[in-house]
Simulated assay, not measured.
Amino acid sequence: MSLVGVIVSHSIVLFDYIEERHIAGDDFENELIDVAILRLHPVLITVFATALALFPLALHGGPLWKPLCYAQIGGLLIATVVTKLHVPVMYAIFFLGLKILEWGIVEEPTPSQPSSLPNHQPYVSASHPE
């Protein structure tokens, strides 16, 4: 479960960073390469720090901890490589290959546009009537 949590969080951060670059108006192909390279350093630091922290327990732990730590270390290293390659490729497949999703210009709502909420009124506290 801990491997799944770490890898999913890395994927979510990668997707979030891709969306931030999309909102900024970057080109799709260049952005996927840039995002993968820019997020590589923080992900590798996290993974290697976790793997180094598990080595003493893997070397001197009991019969339960040794195989568990080796599985965690190996899983982190392999899953990180697979995830860093897999996520941008799958993102490109959904946008370019299958065209399920569309890469377009994101328009920010302007303050002059009316609210989409019906009967939008400011909140007035009962204890402080205006």
Score class of each variant (00 low, 15 high):
114 P>E: 06
41 H>A: 11
105 I>E: 09
17 Y>F: 14
118 P>F: 06
129 P>D: 06
78 I>Q: 00
40 L>A: 13
31 E>H: 04
46 T>K: 08
112 S>A: 13
104 G>K: 15
25 G>Y: 09
59 L>V: 09
15 F>K: 02
33 I>E: 07
85 L>E: 08
8 V>T: 11
85 L>Q: 14
53 A>R: 00
79 A>N: 09
75 G>M: 01
80 T>R: 01
119 N>G: 10
44 L>G: 03
127 S>G: 12
26 D>G: 10
53 A>G: 09
120 H>R: 09
94 F>K: 12
70 Y>E: 01
89 V>W: 11
98 L>I: 04
4 V>Y: 06
34 D>H: 06
94 F>C: 07
13 V>N: 15
106 V>F: 04
50 T>Q: 07
109 P>W: 02
30 N>Q: 10
10 H>Q: 15
41 H>V: 14
93 I>K: 06
53 A>E: 04
105 I>Q: 05
77 L>F: 01
105 I>L: 02
129 P>C: 05
107 E>Y: 03
118 P>W: 10
83 T>S: 15
57 L>N: 01
74 G>Q: 08
26 D>R: 07
21 R>Y: 07
40 L>G: 08
63 P>Y: 04
120 H>M: 09
36 A>M: 12
17 Y>D: 13
127 S>E: 11
126 A>Q: 05
10 H>N: 15
75 G>R: 00
10 H>V: 11
17 Y>K: 09
18 I>P: 11
42 P>V: 11
100 I>F: 04
9 S>W: 04
37 I>L: 07
119 N>Q: 15
83 T>V: 15
13 V>L: 12
37 I>D: 10
60 H>L: 07
99 K>E: 15
91 Y>R: 08
29 E>L: 05
42 P>R: 04
106 V>Y: 09
97 G>V: 06
63 P>S: 07
11 S>P: 12
127 S>R: 10
1 M>R: 09
13 V>K: 13
94 F>V: 11
2 S>Y: 06
53 A>S: 10
17 Y>P: 05
65 W>K: 12
103 W>T: 02
56 P>H: 02
129 P>W: 08
113 Q>M: 11
31 E>W: 00
116 S>G: 13
67 P>Y: 03
